[in-house]
Each structure stands twice: as structure tokens, then as C-alpha cells.
Nucleic acid binder design. Structure first.
Lengths: 356, 356
DNA sequence: TTGTAAGCGTTATCAT
DNA sequence: ATGATAACGCTTACAA
């Protein structure tokens, strides 16, 4: 035992009457080792509670046991779910997770990231959207020799470097559901320009409307920036229309909460006067009144797979993990959707496929 | 430059025509150094983009540049705010943050933590509530020689080892506000047993009622476990009372959201028929309908101070940072509180201090 | 003010 | 199958 309290490999070697290297072999599960010696060493290790020092190990191996999580503060719940997924994958491995928020807007963002990566010499990083959508970020990781996996709402890279959800199809299906309920005048509260997710969700919405042969005037689309307030403002614009929409798809839950507020401020009843669907299935969706029908994407599983891709071949993990790259979202039906009211000017087009 | 690509201290030394040690002195800002030499070395460092290797540094210094965040998944927003505060404090320093969720319920929780700390040899940890309330956790850190700072809703330790909010007083003030509005029949949705925060908040509530001379029958208190559903159930119990409460203080926002749902399901209007106050000021508070009056505690600032305490004296930080240990919460007044309706059986006591 | 030698705890190389 | 020896990149003695 050294003064630091923690026993070192030398202590083990001395006590077991072998060389450091032998102990090292035991630690690293070298196959060419006498069963006896191994046993003896393992016993000593157990007795004195020896734990290899990751710093020394990392130095000798010229590598590092840290995995970075790089994000640009999307909503808190998403980040937490991703952290949880990563940690699940890393659990039991020798890797730890270090978190690095970045300011997407900042001019020095790329520099900051480079500094971080070069300084810490991270083993790899998990890139969360929307930063993950930035190709130069991925290129930077590559050039520095830092592994990476990107999370996105659409395939952003080859399967070894990304996990993706199918936002476009999921929104299309959600909109189909609205249409199946009898809605024709459906508004879209879109996400911010430059966000791939916003684009995919909008495309999905347009797909559904086009498939149903419903014209989609530009006025039925109002963009927000994924915040509550922007959702409220966008909804006001939409609800000012005459005739006003009977349903609104919001590109995330937080904006959907804003839509609900806007509707409520006008005395509109949800879902009687207005149906609403959100996206993300954050806790807010279930806690809002009425509970919000929304699209759930498997962020935790995606993060877990992403992390597993990162450490594939390391630390006893199978060299070629075949983790999935594409993940499916599902529509969570709650109470914010109902067939449209038979109000004047409503069923202008086809009074057909009107369920229940 | 080595094969790894990154230049090392040797490269700098060679290029600058000095010894490693001199470069080391430059890096560590040693005072006894010829200005010329320093300049020359610094130039070389800048030119080749040398960055000291934290692993090697840590090994030589027998220390580590990682700060742990240990938590037991309270709500996501709280964890995110704390992470943000920590990161603000660590920004620009050589420290990184590694996150470690723990399962408070698990029998092996203490062992898990010990393993984590011994393996990683963390420089220090920030303990979030409710794990921070566990004295054996702090004792464990101590015994391992890992610095720690605890976050809590009341002073849990000496000022070097904790940051605390004043939950009791804050809840007392919030309840006073309800009383000042004219409420007399006020219910409490309490937090789970074993949580210090739950206890403090309840005490604050009782303080206010006692100060106002309002009797507080046991039936006016229903405990939940800080979740939406438990808040809903607790509220149902309270609202079943005859006469029913005209106001409810909920020990956190998530349960308050459950209270709102319960009230709405009975056709009660908020705040006309029922006033509600929550605690935490999570995003949910502002996004619920009506916007929730709630108590905000400065978690980000607390986390920042906690992290600064942790690294006091290190990395160029002043040796004796006098970071505050006690933090004040504030009541955020929104739309969920109003004077009680003049309904039958209501103003039994004093029809006095009735504002607005 | 600067350099030399030794060491931090581990692994790779090359013997034996 | 096992062990000396030299790294890994940096810092602390201790000299000069």
C-alpha cells in the first residue's frame, strides 16, 4: 500500500510473489497464464482490494476511458433520457460519461469542441441533435481521431456512426390519424429552420396531407422554435384564420402546450373545438390538460445503442455489435384528439371516411 | 510529435531548446522563470498547439481532474439545472464532470458508490438530494478521501461541505400568502417520508398555519411521493372532504399538476374554486393551465457554488473561496391563486385581511 | 533560473 | 508461462 491508501499493481505483485507484468496479464485476462498463478494473483487482488488505476492504464495504453455526451440543451427530459441510455450501455464497463453542453449559436462552437476533444482525448462522443446534424462537427471528430455516433431524426451518416428515428413517417402517421378522425383543416406548428427534425416532421405532415388530397395553404403552417411561447404565438396565428383549423399538429410537446394555452385563452375546448397532437412524449404531454396525444420516439434505446456502437470491440464487448441504427416512433393516443365538431363551413370537401 | 498526433511536453522542450521541467514550469505558471525563456516556450506551445495530457498530469500529481455528480434521478429539470451550474463553475478549469446516477433504494447503493469513487479516484463529488441527505454517503466520501459538497433543503453539514435552500421558511411564506388571500381551509400534499425536503416543507406549512392560529386537522394532509399520479390521488382525498379545502399547497410542481387534474376532473375551476401553490418552479409550472404559483429555489446557483467549493484552491481558484452556503427561495406568483369564493360555510373565522 | 534523475501506475517488447 | 526493461507524459525532488 502506498501513502495514497490505494494498493497498486506493485503491492499485488509483491504479495503474490510474481512480477508486475503477470498481474497485468491477470487484469487483462491474458489467455496464456498458468491457472495456479492466476488464482494466486486473483486471491491477492481480492484480499487487498486492488483496483487498477484508470489514469495509469490510460497513459500506458495511450487511450482514455471517457465517453463524451455533446449536446445543445434541447429539452431537459430528452437529455436525461439520453444520459440514462448511455449510462445503461456503459454500466459495468470501464468507461465513464462526461457531459459537454455546447452553444450551437456561438461562433466558437467548433473551436470549443475541438479544444474539449483534444484536451480530454476522449475515447468517443455521442452527438445529440441538433448539433449532431452539423456535418462539420462529425468531420472534426474524425480529423481528431475521436470516435462518434450521431443521434438524429433521419439517417445522418453510415450505420456505424448514427442512430436515427423516423420522424417523417411518424408525423405522417399522426396526421393520418387526424385525417381519419375527419379533420380537413389541419394546421402545422413547425419547428425552427435549420433543425433537421423540424424539416422531417414538416415533410411528414405534408406527405399525409398530400396523400389524402387535402390542399395545404401556406397559411396553415406557422413556425415556432420549439419553445412554449413560440407555440403559443404560432397557434394564435393559426386560430385567427377563418375558418379556423379544427386540428393542429405541433412539432414538439412544449409548443403543443403553448397551443393549448392559446386555445384556452380563446375559450376553445380541447378536443371538442380543437384537436392537438404533439411530438416527443415528454412528461408535459401527460400532465397537461387534456392529456396530449403525441408521438413518442425511443430516445433512451437510441442512446443506449449509440453508446454500444461507440465501445464496440472494447472492454470485452463483442467486436462487431450489430446494434440497430433505425428506430421506430409510436403514436401515444390520449385525450387531445376527437372528431371535428359539425360546425358551419366544416365538411366542405368529402364527408366520407368519418369514423366513430 | 508522437504517432498519436498530439504533441507532448518533449516536443515543446526540444523545439524551445529547454528541458521538460522548464516547460512544465511554464505550464504550471511557476513564478521563478526567466521572462525570455517563458516567452520562448509559450510561443512554441502556441505554434504546435501543445496541450498537456490530463491523464499523465493526474498520474504524476497523484490526483484526478474529474468531479462527480451523484444523484438519484429527481426530476429531469432539476438535474439539468444542477449540471449547468456545475459546468459553469468548472468552465475554464481543467476539471470535467462525470455523472453518476444511483439507486437510492438499492441495497448495494453504498457499495456501488464506493466502487465508483475508488475506481475513478474522483477529485470530488457533488451530492444531490435526496441522496445528499444520507449521512453515510458523506461519511463514505470522507473515508475514501474524496471531497464532497451536499445540496439540501436545509443545512446538512458544515459550510464547506454543503449548500442549502430554506425550504421551511419558503413554504411558510407561501402558506402565509394563501392565508393573506383569505384562505382558512388549506390542504397540504406532502412529499414522501424519508425525504428531508418533504419534512422541511411540511414544517413550513405547519408553521404558517400555527402562526395564523388556524387548526390543522390531520385530514388536511395527504402525502404523495413527488409524482404526478401521487399528487392526483392525494388531491382526491383532500377534495373529498366536507367542507373541502379552498386551497392546496403541494410540496412539488409535479404533484401540483396532479392536483390540477384532480380538480378539473371534478369540474372545479382554478383558481375560483381552488387555489394551488407548488414548489420547484419547473417548466411544468408555467405551462400548466392556469399557470402555477410556485416556489422557486436557485438550484443552478447552488450547484455552481457547490462546485466552486469543491475546487477551491485548485487550478488557480482563490484558496479560500467564500461561496455562500445558504440560498433563498422566492414565491413566483402566477394565476393559480385567488381569494376563496364566498361559498356557504366558507368564511367561518375572520373575514378580515381580504385583499383585492 | 534551469536541468537531471527518479518516479507516478500501468502496459508493450523482448527475452528466458 | 513468466519476467526484466523500457516506455507513456508529466511532476517532484535535488542539483547546478
Amino acid at each position: 500500500m502506498q501513502k495514497t491508501g490505494q494498493p497498486t499493481i506493485n503491492d499485488v505483485a509483491r504479495l503474490a510473489g510474481v512480477s508486475k507484468k503477470t498481474v497485468s496479464r491477470v487484469i487483462n485476462r491474458s489467455p496464456l497464464l498458468n491457472g495456479d498463478t492466476r488464482k494466486r494473483v486473483e486471491d491477492v487482488i481480492g484480499e487487498i482490494g486492488y483496483i487498477p488505476n484508470p489514469q495509469a492504464r490510460g497513459l500506458a495504453l495511450r487511450r482514455n476511458f471517457l465517453i463524451g455526451l455533446v449536446h445543445d440543451n434541447p429539452n431537459a427530459q430528452t437529455v436525461m433520457n439520453v444520459q440514462q441510455g448511455m449510462l445503461e450501455a456503459l454500466r459495468g464497463s470501464e468507461f465513464e460519461m462526461v457531459v459537454r453542453p455546447l452553444d450551437r449559436g456561438s461562433a466558437t462552437m467548433l473551436q470549443d469542441l475541438r479544444h474539449f476533444l483534444e484536451r480530454q482525448r476522449l475515447f468517443g462522443v455521442l452527438l445529440m441533435p441538433p448539433i449532431s446534424e452539423n456535418d462539420s462537427v462529425a468531420a472534426l471528430c474524425d480529423s481528431i481521431g475521436c470516435r462518434y455516433v450521431r443521434m438524429g431524426s433521419v439517417a445522418l451518416d453510415d450505420t456505424d456512426h448514427m442512430v436515427a428515428s423516423n420522424d417523417r413517417e411518424a408525423v405522417c402517421a399522426a396526421t393520418d390519424y387526424l385525417i381519419a378522425q375527419g379533420h380537413r383543416r389541419i394546421g402545422l406548428v413547425g419547428g425552427p429552420h435549420g433543425f433537421r427534425s423540424a424539416r422531417e416532421r414538416r415533410l411528414g405532415f405534408e406527405d399525409a396531407m398530400a396523400n389524402a388530397g387535402i390542399p395545404l395553404p401556406r397559411s396553415m403552417i406557422a413556425d415556432g422554435n420549439y419553445t412554449f411561447d413560440s407555440g403559443l404565438v404560432a397557434a394564435e396565428r393559426l386560430l385567427d384564420l377563418t375558418p379556423r383549423p379544427t386540428a393542429i399538429f405541433s412539432s414538439n410537446d412544449e409548443m403543443a402546450a403553448g397551443v393549448i394555452h392559446a386555445a384556452r385563452q380563446r375559450g376553445l375546448d380541447i378536443p371538442r373545438d380543437l384537436s392537438i397532437i404533439g411530438f416527443d412524449d415528454t412528461p408535459i404531454a401527460a400532465h397537461v390538460w387534456p392529456p396530449l396525444t403525441t408521438v413518442r420516439w425511443p430516445m433512451t434505446s437510441m442512446a443506449r445503442s449509440a453508446a454500444l456502437k461507440l465501445i464496440a470491440g472494447e472492454d470485452g464487448m463483442p467486436a462487431e455489435v450489430e446494434e440497430p441504427s433505425l428506430f421506430l416512433s409510436t403514436l401515444i393516443r390520449r385525450a387531445s384528439v376527437a372528431p371535428p365538431q359539425a360546425s358551419p363551413a366544416a365538411t366542405a370537401a368529402t364527408p366520407s371516411d368519418d369514423p366513430s
